[in-house]
Design a protein around this nucleic acid. Structure first.
Lengths: 244, 244
DNA sequence: CCAGCGCGATTGTGATCTCATATTGTGATC
DNA sequence: GATCACAATATGAGATCACAATCGCGCTGG
């Protein structure tokens, strides 16, 4: 989807619809962070981003502001915002907190799971396995996220979900980078255990599966992270443009 | 502290200092939410707030945007933002998550506690007890918050702190309202146990104390909450102005 | 007396402008 | 050749303007 250039107040088409531009921008940025369109360390320029999206810096500023509030981005001394580089200690912290929070969400979800949930998760996991087979990073990350969030969503907690989203936005860029490294394993084996535990209605086992999945991912991520986060052994420039 | 009116681009005094107005506004709003200057359900008007603070709507918009991202405020259908009313289920959720997260933070803090922490917490608790004695709501909330956050801060987790802050901002307004209700107990008895456990270096006991403190508070809050959150038995208008 | 309607006031949103500051690039000096 | 200073540029922040959607309130018709 492309945002139409809505410049020039006057004349012709494209009446300004109220209050929806920033939603597009937010969606664009969140997705961009998740699928690795932005490199850790990269500073975001209001004007550049705005130009790329065909809007004024204003909606971009609002969105960046929200993402800073969610710890997905950080401000530099000069007031710019950039994608944070995760030091190993913070990465470790992040995954420890993930285990706790997402483990709880998974357990709660398992207790409340309706009949449709299992089928839905199975379908998503099939697509995830296909993506892994094809070495398709984007779909791999996308379906993995969908798997986890669909499960957690079933907990029905309006409190946990925003916290989990904040955590995912924080490690998202690093996660993508790590998948570019050859030694990084692509693994979704824990999902099978989670699904079978869910089928049996064993909430504690579902929690255990999620915790194990997160721990495995965290260990793998830490193993490829240098002191300043994940760095690639080859050059890779920031992609300011991508389709979504 | 008062923010100088920095209107009118031209002429006389008050040169526009760069990029600090919104920090004042953010501080003002966060504190306002914590100390109950804003009533749950109240809608915030950009222009009113800006006029009250002597700035343009712009910095206010950015701050409100961040607070919405932190779940401290919510947007109405029309795009305005308001202080959320917490339904009992959400309140219950919130305090369950608090137990988990703050319990973990407290345990971690207890393990890393340096020698100065105990003294600092003791001092804060003294002030809290004085505030309770005087039935001074503002200082009571303020010192209670300081007690908890000082403890959690000692965990050194850059990941947990923002999450905890988000949670406190969510129940802050409701907490204040509840203290206005006569039947609501003013209690800090758990803090004594926490301090003695901390002195003995029993991290697990510190965690237990924090969890108990949170659970007690949550139960009390739930007991005075109606189906639409805490409502006062008497009228109370929103206070748009307060000193801080 | 109440429901439906319409007009006006209010509000949020996005664009544009200006300014102060941060950053970068260039040139001179040691 | 390296370093420092200064200038040019880029960038974010805040103010102001314009506009459309929304909300409130009174009016009118049943």
């Amino acid at each position: 989807m492309r945002i139409d250039k809505a410049h020039s107040n006057g004349s012709d088409g494209a009446k300004r619809a109220r209050g929806h531009v920033h939603e597009h921008v937010l969606h664009y940025m969140r997705r961009g962070l998740m699928i690795g369109a932005f490199v850790p360390g990269q500073v975001m320029s209001l004007r550049k981003l705005a130009a790329g999206l065909g809007t004024s810096p204003m909606p971009v500023r609002e969105v960046l502001s929200r993402l800073v509030a969610a710890s997905a981005l950080e401000e530099t001394a000069g007031g710019s915002v950039r994608v944070p580089k995760l030091r190993p200690e913070k990465l470790s912290d992040l995954f420890a907190v993930r285990e706790m929070i997402e483990g709880t969400a998974a357990e709660s979800a398992a207790k409340k799971a309706g009949p449709g949930l299992l089928a839905e998760l199975n379908g998503i996991n099939e697509q995830l396995l296909t993506a892994i087979e094809k070495r398709d990073i984007l779909n791999c990350l996308s379906f993995n996220q969908k798997f986890h969030f669909t499960l957690y969503e079933a907990s029905g907690s309006e409190v946990l979900m925003p916290l989990i989203e904040s955590l995912w936005l924080q490690f998202g860029p690093t996660m993508y980078m790590s998948l570019l490294i050859p030694s990084m394993p692509w693994n979704a084996s824990d999902h099978k255990d989670i699904l079978s535990a869910l089928k049996d209605g064993h909430a504690a086992a579902v929690k255990k599966g999620i915790v194990h999945d997160i721990r495995t991912t965290g260990k793998a991520l830490l193993s490829v992270a240098g002191p300043d986060g994940v760095d690639l052994p080859f050059a890779r420039g920031p992609e300011l443009q991508f389709d979504y």
